[in-house]
Design a protein around this nucleic acid. Structure first.
Lengths: 156, 156
DNA sequence: CCACGGGCTGGTCAGAGTGCTCACTCTGTT
DNA sequence: AACAGAGTGAGCACTCTGACCAGCCCGTGG
């Protein structure tokens, strides 16, 4: 990860559809260089690909909620499996602190959220569920600042 | 959002680098159709683009932590601004329930997390911070199941 | 001191995909 | 019965891709 890598990723973050050739032009380097950098980033696992970014809101799932889940001791694997089976569950983390699992889920409306929450509490070995609704998202998921830092001061 | 849209998005989720032509072949429809569908999805805001997926772990930020932040009444905007200025803060939501803000942040190590947390509590009007470290991520961020549901039973 | 490997450059090449337009067909609707 | 919307299949010029090449620069190490 040196400055060029960072600038390349930053460029692709802003305009993901750019081809290798266009990137090389904007960065002022040869095409082969960009190609080699991208290959290496993929190889190292830093660049995992270019998945489509879907807006769940536009798809009708306008509601995001977070839940802290307490579960029965030693049942994490089973509970996670049960959670994974619920489509509206978009993300699960095992955490330290109050609660064992941390869940992000989406729903179409408050009523729909009720349904989803019911599904979650119905998962075997789930003891307690504490749900919060996301009212707004002042800082949407981002990586940019981290890249910009790398760009700023040379490399690692 | 009908079945074809869902299948198209699913296909792109699995193999994002596919071109329009290849998609049309795999889906068994004409190229123009795929092109039109994509255009419409973008127009509706469902498909926001193809941002590069970066693996923060591979970039050295192997630690993810969540924090529930309590702030002074009526200072949300300022606090969010302060949080946004911290590069390691990757996401902020305003929530209902215990705590006002919900933050996702990354760090290079436990010691580094300490530093980040210190930055967060230093943001003016932050009253209390309750941090949890993500030990594992049994269900990584995903949208697939939602799409598969649309694919299953015809449309909207 | 010089050879060596790695990384970058700038060029070429054929093959493939892109964006765009067109005329035609098949729906369900008015 | 006519119509708008959507999908089809075809053709076009243009561009990018992936692969290859020789040459250059620089830090390492013999």
């Amino acid at each position: 990860m040196d400055e060029l890598d960072a600038r390349l990723l930053l460029l692709l973050t802003d305009e993901p559809r750019l081809g290798v050739l266009e990137c090389s032009r904007r960065l002022g380097v040869a095409r082969g260089t960009v190609q080699a950098r991208l290959d290496r980033l993929v190889e190292r696992g830093v660049l995992a690909g270019f998945p489509p970014a879907l807006d769940l809101g536009a798809m009708g799932y306008g509601l995001t909620a977070f839940a802290v889940v307490e579960i029965a001791q030693g049942r994490r694997a089973e509970v996670c499996e049960g959670l994974a089976a619920i489509p509206e569950v978009c993300e699960v983390h095992a955490t330290t602190g109050q609660g064992d699992l941390f869940v992000r889920m989406v729903a179409r409306s408050n009523a729909d959220l009720q349904r989803v929450v019911d599904h979650v509490v119905d998962v075997p070995h789930v003891r307690r569920l504490s749900t919060s609704i996301a009212l707004s998202t002042p800082v949407p998921p981002r990586v940019r600042p981290l890249l910009e830092r790398v760009k700023g001061r040379p490399p690692r």
